[in-house]
Design a protein around this nucleic acid. Structure first.
Length: 351
DNA sequence: TAAGCGTGGTA
DNA sequence: TTACCAAGCTT
């Protein structure tokens, strides 16, 4: 099958099966020549990095309702953005999101650059996101290479070299297939194909528009691609946190350092989480149990302590009971809170 | 180049 | 229960 025919076959499939998504222009509007809003495309692509569509949807809707334009987001308070991002993970994305919005507002007059090359200079925008925004928002025939496309290409061409070493080879295959016309639709189509047909497990080769040219399909071993180099085992780390209230009933939180794990987010004070952390000191309060949480590169076992009438350190962030939202803190901190809250008089609803 | 960086869903 | 996986970027 010729490369052009493959692109056409995929676009035909996309025209029939494209999913409706909040950041996507409807098929009818697309036919009428409506272009997507670059701000929405960018915001969705940042949120979708290593994150599923289902998880992103409510966050995207909420961000858009609070900050409808890039200029609105540029004028937001950092902490407000972090609070809304809480639970979505990879918090460096939230820090770079605000940075990027401010660069666009200040240096580009509130208008996103229109080429993937220029987009690549913005904070938080790497090769994938630059290509995706360039293609989807501006119809630039840029090649998107995400996990989906890597999987599709590795199967189409039955690439034996394992990822990540094979990445540039996969990029070449993807680039050769990328058409000049309908670049935005094609980019979304090839990713949709990976997300819905050419899935990691049990791919639906029988209904795939690229079944005919696919070498792995012919060999019957599509599910064994892409080859991957084995991952290192995750170590177990331990630590403790202290969920404390002041005499006034305020929660004693702290703002974590900007860099590193959960950077910039609110959390409960406690130990570090390196190996060989010391036991919790007396002042941490009464131990009520432990929670577990798995990060990208380690498992965490966290002892949870509670303390009433605590005297907060000078750098604490005191949050009044009625101002505290459980949803404003990262998931591991929510777990600690859920365990600790039973020890407090929290009859009131806490979101 | 490799490590650091979250979370929720799935088999 | 454990391990893998998802529209990656930064240092």
């Amino acid at each position: 099958m010729k490369q052009n025919d493959m692109a056409s076959a995929l676009l035909d499939w996309y025209d029939r099966h494209a999913r409706t998504l909040p950041w996507r222009v409807s098929p009818a509007d697309r036919l009428a020549g409506v272009r997507p809003d670059p701000y929405r495309v960018w915001l969705s692509e940042i949120m979708l990095q290593q994150t599923t569509v289902t998880t992103v949807k409510p966050y995207f809707e909420r961000f858009l309702s609070i900050w409808p334009t890039v200029n609105d987001l540029a004028g937001a308070q950092d902490d407000a953005v972090f609070a809304e991002w809480a639970g979505l993970g990879y918090y460096a994305r939230a820090r770079n999101l605000v940075k990027c919005a401010r660069v666009v507002a200040r240096d580009h007059g509130g208008v996103f650059p229109v080429t993937s090359k220029a987009l690549l200079d913005l904070p938080g925008i790497g090769p994938y996101t630059a290509a995706a925004v360039g293609a989807i928002a501006f119809d630039e025939p840029a090649t998107v290479l995400d996990g989906n496309v890597e999987r599709v290409m590795s199967r189409l061409f039955r690439v034996e070299m394992p990822l990540p070493a094979s990445k540039e080879s996969l990029r070449k295959h993807a680039s050769d297939l990328t058409p000049q016309a309908r670049a935005g639709d094609y980019a979304q189509a090839v990713m949709d194909l990976g997300a819905t047909i050419c899935t990691p497990r049990s791919p639906a080769c029988g209904i795939c528009p690229w079944s005919a040219p696919c070498l792995a399909r012919a060999a019957g071993d599509a599910d064994s691609y892409p080859r991957k180099t084995p991952k290192k085992p995750k170590p177990v780390r331990r630590g403790h946190v202290s969920v404390a209230q002041t005499e006034m009933g305020e929660w004693v939180l702290e703002k974590r350092p900007e860099k590193g794990l959960l950077g910039g987010m609110l959390g409960w004070p406690g130990s570090g989480w390196a190996e060989g952390e010391p036991d919790a000191p007396e002042q941490a309060g009464v131990r009520v149990g432990q929670v577990t949480h798995t990060f990208t590169h380690f498992h965490l076992v966290l002892d949870v302590h509670v303390k009433k009438n605590a005297k907060p350190p000078a750098d604490a962030r005191l949050v009044a009971k009625h101002d505290f939202r459980r949803s404003d803190i990262p998931t591991v901190m929510r777990k600690a809170f859920d365990l600790a809250r039973a020890s407090f008089d929290t009859e009131e609803k806490v979101q």
